[in-house]
């Protein structure tokens, strides 16, 4: 019982980190139709910026400033590099973000080296906040969830309740009309790309401290974030939220199962090959999200809440 309880909480926490990352990706996609392959690299850049800033300025400042800087970088990338490519269609943009991911990785290695950097939470967040079925729940995990909820709550309010959000949503479906009404859609796109980058960086400052900050962090978390976005439905924030929690829970709960596949499927085991029956259920956990994605693409290509097919 204890293990199920702590697994649920772990899954929830991991899910929120995935969501923070997936939200920016799906936001940019919904508005600009760009699958940003460099999104996870911006997450990594956020982690490194956070590391560099936390030294002289303290962690709290780093959490605020690093996303700001990466957000501005995102704006600049959109304004001077992505926008000229826009006329040549999505393939050019896709290839550009793909190349950008490598560029950022190499740049990070040049500046900060190939090893792990010591980016961690301040001592105030290292302690445990409360006991959950006998296991301490670290304060930084609670902080992570709180930041995710705050960031995404304000994102929701911004998009759904403000005038700016209205223009953004209108620019999504009717860019020409919005332009004719006197709004600068190019600038809207730029800020949205910047916002997505800032969200990734925010996830990075916190995720980098929670996991590790090193040059391969982008590629490692990048793939799983794509899975989240595809399962949730391309461009859907609610979908990304549900998918992130679903994948977080699925992975942690499968690991908690202490059975071999043969025992888990019971009577059916008679028809399964012996090699397969001997596999531990926990060994399947890492594949589960990808299996789920394949199943989703076959049965419901638009994902949970998507409006168009992947």
């Amino acid at each position: 019982m204890d293990i199920i309880a702590s697994s649920l909480l772990n899954g929830l926490t991991y899910g929120f980190l995935l969501f923070m990352l997936a939200a920016g990706l799906t936001l940019v996609f919904s508005l600009m139709g760009i699958m940003n392959f460099a999104h996870a690299s911006l997450y990594m850049l956020g982690a490194y910026m956070g590391y560099a800033l936390a030294r002289p300025l303290g962690f709290a400042t780093a959490v605020l400033v690093a996303p700001l800087l990466v957000g501005l970088l995102g704006c600049a990338l959109e304004r001077w590099l992505l926008r000229p490519l826009h006329a040549r269609g999505h393939v050019a943009e896709l290839l550009f973000t793909f190349g950008l991911a490598f560029l950022i990785e190499e740049a990070v290695k040049l500046v900060w080296g190939a090893g792990v950097v010591d980016h961690h939470f301040p001592p105030a967040l290292e302690g445990s906040l409360f006991q959950w079925f006998g296991t301490p729940y670290p304060a930084y995990k609670a902080f992570m969830v709180a930041v995710a909820v705050a960031a995404l709550g304000s994102l929701y309010l911004l998009v759904a309740r403000t005038r700016v959000g209205l223009i953004v949503r209108a620019a999504l479906t009717h860019p020409m009309m919005v332009e004719n009404l006197g709004h600068d859609t190019d600038r809207v796109f730029m800020w949205v790309f910047g916002l997505g980058s800032a969200l990734a960086a925010l996830a990075g400052v916190i995720g980098g401290a929670a996991l590790t900050t090193e040059p391969s962090m982008a590629t490692q978390l990048g793939t799983i974030v794509f899975v989240v976005v595809v399962i949730g439905g391309l461009g859907s924030i609610q979908g990304a939220f549900l998918a992130a929690l679903l994948i977080g829970m699925l992975q942690t709960l499968l690991i908690a199962v202490d059975l071999r596949l043969g025992q888990a499927i019971g009577m059916l085991a008679r028809y399964a090959p012996a090699v397969l029956a001997d596999v531990k259920v926990s060994q399947l956990a890492p594949i589960a999200p990808y299996a789920l994605m394949v199943a989703m693409l076959l049965l419901r290509p638009r994902g949970l809440f998507g409006r168009r097919d992947a």
Partner: peptide, 23 residues
């Protein structure tokens, strides 16, 4: 009391494994 194998170089969050070790 337990044997576990996880994928090499790809596991980011070990909290679930630790929960299992603890249990």
């Amino acid at each position: 009391v337990g044997e576990e194998r996880h994928p090499i170089g790809r596991t980011k969050d070990f909290a679930p494994y630790v929960a299992k070790i603890k249990a």
